[in-house]
C-alpha cells in the first residue's frame, strides 16, 4: 500500500501537524518508504494468532477509588504559556 498527496494532508490534519504544500512530496516519499519496509509483514501467517495486548502476563493492580492528590493548581499551571487565575488560556472556541 502507498499513500498519495491527499492522504498525506489528511494524516497531517489527523495528527494536528501543519504541513506546507512544499513539504508534502517529501513526506509522501518518506511515508511510502516506511510502508514499503513494513509490507513484508503481509507474508507472515497470523491465522488464529492472538494480538499481543500485555507484555508481561499479570493482573492489573487496582487502587481504592479515592482522592489521593490535589490542591496543587499552582504546580499544574506553572509551566503553561498562558494562564489566568488557574485557567489555561486558548483562542476563542465558542462564538
Amino acid at each position: 500500500m502507498s499513500v498519495d498527496a491527499a492522504t498525506v494532508r489528511r494524516i497531517a490534519h489527523l495528527a494536528r501537524i501543519a504541513v506546507t504544500d512544499e513539504e508534502v512530496p517529501h513526506l509522501q516519499g518518506e511515508l511510502n518508504a516506511m510502508l514499503a519496509f513494513v509490507e513484508q509483514l503481509s507474508e507472515v501467517n497470523v491465522d488464529g494468532v492472538e494480538p499481543m495486548t500485555s507484555v508481561i502476563p499479570m493482573e492489573m493492580k487496582k487502587r481504592a477509588d479515592v482522592v489521593n492528590d490535589g490542591e496543587i493548581a499552582d504546580d499544574i499551571v506553572r509551566n503553561a504559556p498562558a494562564t489566568d487565575d488557574h485557567f489555561f488560556l486558548v483562542p476563542k472556541v465558542v462564538e
Binding site: H13, R16, A18, V77, N79, P81, V90, P91
Partner: peptide, 20 residues
C-alpha cells in the same frame, strides 16, 4: 496549551497544528 512551546493560530485547531 498546558506546557511547552506555543505557536499562535487564528483558531485553537490552528494553534495546535502550528505548535506541533
Amino acid at each position: 496549551v498546558r506546557y511547552g512551546l506555543q505557536v499562535p493560530g487564528r483558531s485553537i485547531g490552528e494553534q495546535y497544528e502550528n505548535t506541533r
